[in-house]
């Protein structure tokens, strides 16, 4: 579950290709333009590698941290069937994290380094997971709409240029179609249930709307940067494109249930075919992503605790003459 909302590294504002061999660069770009995939040991521009590592790593962290707000509700799920389904979903998310860490590792960053950077706060993950899941209805809204947003993003990225990332995403998208159905079923159940259940799901939806709008990242500024990353098929659509696709697919479904969204300006402009909305507060977004959200500390503390508690087990079974090589694909 990952959106486009990662923070650009401000130091990388110079040309992304400044120090690259022009002949190799041209071959590389021709390969991508022809629709071929790039594989781990191929020549690639330094910035291509850097941007991909950052993006895939953040995606992996998002899967792992994203399991926490939902996992909260496993012990209190209403009924055995819901509990089983939620457990399966949370297990899927952890598995997706593993797949993505492996894809990032093929680019040369070890899993240990990625975990260290997550725990120390150096690496980011999707901002939405810094918000609490206050009620069962929150877990329903997350499973439906955050996963929906992630699927929009992941389907686009699975057509990208880096082979290992595409392969991981195809597997992930296949599994996540169940998440989406499960989440929708949950929301529909609450929205068509008792007045109390409706009230719960409406409340959750209203609280999650801004984080969902944030999920796709700040509005695009078409910098040279974005243009190159799109040419390299690292970024497969602008943040606003992804947000529009999501709104187009899901706002009608939300309104169908008689639920409301906390934005009086939200409507589709029939002439342009585009959705109009009030910009979410991007200052809040910045604050949360920089560590000041309601749950940032808890998420990292829980992750760190898991690492510490598992350490003695891992140490006990370490193979002394293990030799690390970069995963192949």
């Amino acid at each position: 579950m990952y959106g486009n909302a990662y923070v650009e590294n401000p130091a990388a504002t110079n040309s992304l290709t400044a120090n690259e061999d022009p002949i190799k660069l041209a071959e590389f770009e021709a390969r991508i333009a022809a629709g071929e995939k790039i594989e781990p040991n191929d020549w690639m521009p330094e910035q291509y590698k850097k941007q991909l590592i950052r993006m895939i790593e953040q995606h992996a962290h998002s899967e792992i941290i994203g399991a926490l707000p939902e996992g909260t509700w496993i012990t209190r799920a209403p009924g055995f069937r819901r509990k089983l389904a939620l457990m399966a979903k949370v297990q899927d998310e952890i598995g997706h994290g593993q797949l993505l860490y492996s894809a990032a590792e093929t680019l040369g960053k070890s899993r240990e380094d990625m975990t260290n950077d997550l725990i120390s706060g150096k690496s980011k993950y999707s901002n939405v997971f810094n918000y609490p899941a206050k009620t069962w209805a929150d877990s329903a809204v997350i499973a439906w709409l955050i996963d929906a947003g992630a699927i929009v993003n992941q389907l686009a990225n699975s057509k990208g240029s880096y082979g290992p990332y595409c392969r991981a995403l195809e597997r992930i998208c296949a599994e996540e179609s169940f998440h989406l159905k499960y989440g929708h079923d949950n929301v529909v159940f609450l929205a068509t249930g008792t007045p109390k259940q409706r009230e719960m799901v409406q409340d959750a939806l209203s609280r999650w709307w801004e984080p969902i709008m944030h999920f796709f990242g700040p509005p695009d500024k078409m910098s040279v940067h974005t243009e190159v990353l799109m040419r390299w098929k690292v970024k497969m659509g602008t943040n606003d494109d992804m947000r529009q696709t999501f709104l187009d697919m899901y706002v009608p479904k939300i309104w169908d249930l008689g639920l409301t969204l906390p934005d009086p300006n939200l409507k589709k402009n029939e002439e342009t075919g585009k959705w109009e909305y009030t910009e979410p507060n991007w200052e809040v977004f910045k604050q949360v992503i920089n560590g000041n959200g309601p749950c940032n500390k808890e998420r990292l503390a829980v992750r760190r605790k898991a690492e510490e508690k598992g350490r003695w087990v891992r140490n006990a079974i370490l193979r002394k003459d293990a030799k690390y090589v970069t995963p192949l694909a």
Binding site: E105, R111, D113, T115, E308, R314, R319, K323, Y324
Partner: peptide, 12 residues
């Protein structure tokens, strides 16, 4: 507490 060292998460 202590960072992870190379191979703490095993080989592949």
């Amino acid at each position: 507490e202590g960072e992870l060292q190379p191979l703490d998460h095993f080989e592949t």
